[in-house]
Amino acid sequence: MPRRRTLNPLTELLGAVLLVVLVLVVNRWEFSLAVLLLVVVPAVLVSGQPRRIGVAIVLVAGPLLLSSVLLHGLFFPEGRVVLLDLGPARVTQEGLVFAALMGLRMSVFTGVLLTTAMTLDLPDLIATMTHRGWNRKLVFIIGSALGLLPHVALRARQITRAQQARGLVVGRGPLSRLRALLMVTTPLVIGLLVDASERNHMLEARGFSSSGPRTSYLPDTDTAAQRTGRRVATVAVLLFAAAWLVIGAVA
């Protein structure tokens, strides 16, 4: 199922970020559409888990797209060309164009970042950051938070079931919802804080706050070529962005 890796996770991540910046800079619906069709769709297809990623993209972007079309399609006071008058709401050409531009942009963002995140090899990424000498507090927070996420979600589900077994019923009123939220979050937070305090003592005993060099147990998958590639790509995108904006301002 997992695809063969040729690139370091840091390179993949930077590539995704630069693509997002490019879409923002160029800001044409043709370019967004091209990125969507030529980059995002093939990437999802070859990722080895197209269905899972596809469902995630639709779940994240779908509601946003729909509500964006409703908002700008119906309410766009700046619009001149009125296609349909519905009293307070007016369907205007400008509003629909605006909604399409924003919708394409949002789809590209979601597609690029979600595909990268869902195929990301997390231990490899953390190891690369350690090898590259990133701030180890930052590396600890990132690694620990991403590792903690599924654990927190699982625990929240278990606590919800346990409270439901003890008679928790979530009603429609805001007070009932607030009570349910408290009944789940309070035990969740207490458990997590106790874990954190244990981790605190363990980390201190192992010299976490020392400033010496670190060793990673995982081998370095980063190559000199990729490091150079990352720098070149960043500089190229920055230069392109500057040139594009200057030309746009002059024209």
Partner: peptide, 8 residues
């Protein structure tokens, strides 16, 4: 150590 907890 509580920051990752808050993030999660």
């Amino acid at each position: 150590v509580v920051i990752p907890l808050g993030i999660a």
